[in-house]
Design a protein around this nucleic acid. Structure first.
Lengths: 196, 196, 196, 196
DNA sequence: AATGAATGAGGATTCATTCAT
DNA sequence: AATGAATGAATCCTCATTCAT
């Protein structure tokens, strides 16, 4: 980071291969799970030899950690003037992202591997969960300032109340309900409205 | 013909072994995940030979399906006269059960395996998620009858709002917050109170 | 054999089961080969438990030896007044029997197992090959007496010359040639005709 | 593009190992039979890891097919001016080869496996049976041209008459008779002699 | 006698990783 | 740098056999 590195001798590593490997790894992690996915599959999908992977990441866990770390799964939030609309939009983007990347399986993998490779869940939190929570929290704080929400409301709990129904619905097999975001927002706004 | 059951020929199958295998399988499923867990581990944990397992269940998937199916993870609900107390108790029992059986890892495994062994998630829903939801829903319906909750409230959404924060908290790394159940109940009751 | 046996106490063994097991074993030996065939398959085919098999024969080799020993695969020869017709009929019955019982596979199995279970090939010889050879040899000896065949002809070699083309044809992939028996007989008769 | 062969990347595959594996496989196929032989045995005999085998051949059947295909079991025919001597030499070489490679057991294995792995018998035919038959047939055709054998003689049948006694003798337990080749040749020549 | 349970040994195959080119 | 070869450990599963009922 501070310029101490000598310029690497020999052929430089191909950046395209780096990217292809990481992407393939992430997709396979989501579709197969940690243990079921094999490095051969990653190599095949990335059009690269297995050794090329090991040249960059020492172990399977290293590779998958890197793949999760490289994942950018929070889109920039959609702007709007209205609190309710803002919240609903963030939640809908959240759901769309999860659907797009086979996210529930990926979440499942990270949960299942927590005992063996806790970095996975940690990274998932850091890269995908927490940024989204920050967006929601910022919106709620703004609403607190404007008096739309009680001052003493627990905003972290409110954020969990906004996101939670998505998980609960999925677990119940009622995932995909088009109303869920609006219902969650309305419930939270009703429950935290100033003057209640 | 007087009794419907003919006495089974041969040596009877050991019920203790049945139970030991299923329990070991479930614990390992939670602690290791589907693919990482091996039948050898199950056999060792249950003090049984691998063949004894295969005698009862043809494949690994069969065994784990049976283990999940046999799991009784919803305790009988604690009775109480007060709506709020009832709901909180159900939620706390829910959380306690999940902690007791390493439930988030188990849920993760079922989510991760959904593409390959969908029966796992289906069973988890049927045996653990839906019974708990039914308890909550019954309590809410009662409250609707007594006028504590609006008649037009979407009770399924309310149930998801009650359970959801638990998942969301866990994903955010704030699992174990002792307040979550009360907060969730209060929010839902506030948001669906009749006369709002 | 000399009356020394005490009358067996307890329930006598079922003769039907004996027969069913032996027949199933022989069929599976032919269709699957020694190693590939399993005692479970035999048990299932004979509608009997595996233990019932082991009760009668101590090992797999014992069972299959018994099955081969019990096999009666030489039909009584068809009578006729003419030497050539007699020989052709014997050969055709030979070929028909082999086709009926999947004989080439059975022969193959006995050959393949010769190093491990030489009794199989020995029994096959004793029960199926040699009786047929005796039929042929008897007919040739009769022909020698009537002067149709040279006195100094090697009859064992002649018998092999009669049967051999069947094997050679099969190995060459030309098994089933309808002419083979007549051609073999004609060749042998021409080659051993008295006065050549 | 000037040379058609690009230099293969990576470490080249060891030709010695290839050969050692194939030879070990063939020997074990003959001595143990298809099902009894294990890849572990092959690996041990070839001083190679099991994975090295799987790297080259995906399945056991593939390996054994390749081993049979690689086997060169027909020596170049011995030249001679005399028809009878030629035929006898070919037959004796045939018998010698079979003895050398435990050929009857190998043949037995291929016959026994015909229902499950028909490629084995097919290859055995193509690589060992048919080439030898071609040698014999060529010699007989030559003899037909020079008038030593009747023009209308069925040469394929004659070839089977030459080879057949070997199989028949073996099945009768009289294999190894030193006279068989001469006797077979004499019989065929006598039976097909022009002018009979 | 007959059955089903129980087991230990062994099978083919896959995988993450290390080596040689 | 990049590749393919090589490997040891581990996996699920099958089988012949022995035990308990």
């Amino acid at each position: 980071m501070s310029g101490t590195e000598t310029k690497a001798a020999g052929r430089p590593r191909s950046a395209e291969k780096d990217a292809a490997i990481l992407q393939a790894a992430l997709e396979l992690l989501a579709s197969q799970g940690y243990t079921r996915m094999s490095l051969s599959q990653v190599a095949a999908a990335a059009q690269v030899s297995k050794s090329t992977i090991h040249l960059r990441w020492k172990t399977k866990a290293d590779l998958l950690t890197a793949a999760l770390a490289a994942a950018r799964m929070t889109d920039t939030p959609p702007p709007s003037g209205d609190l309710r609309t803002n919240l609903v939009n963030i939640l809908k983007d959240f759901a769309a992202t999860i659907e797009r990347v086979n996210g529930m399986a990926l979440i499942g993998t990270c949960l299942a591997e927590e005992a063996h490779t806790p970095e996975l869940l940690a990274l998932l939190r850091e890269r995908t969960v927490l940024p989204r929570r920050t967006l929601l929290r910022d919106a709620l704080e703004q609403a607190q300032l404007t008096g739309q929400i009680r001052e003493d409301a627990d905003l972290e709990a409110a954020v969990s109340a906004l996101l939670g129904p998505f998980y609960a619905d999925y677990m119940a097999g009622r995932g995909g309900d088009p109303q869920w975001a609006e219902q969650a927002v309305d419930l939270v706004l009703a429950g935290t409205r100033a003057g209640n």
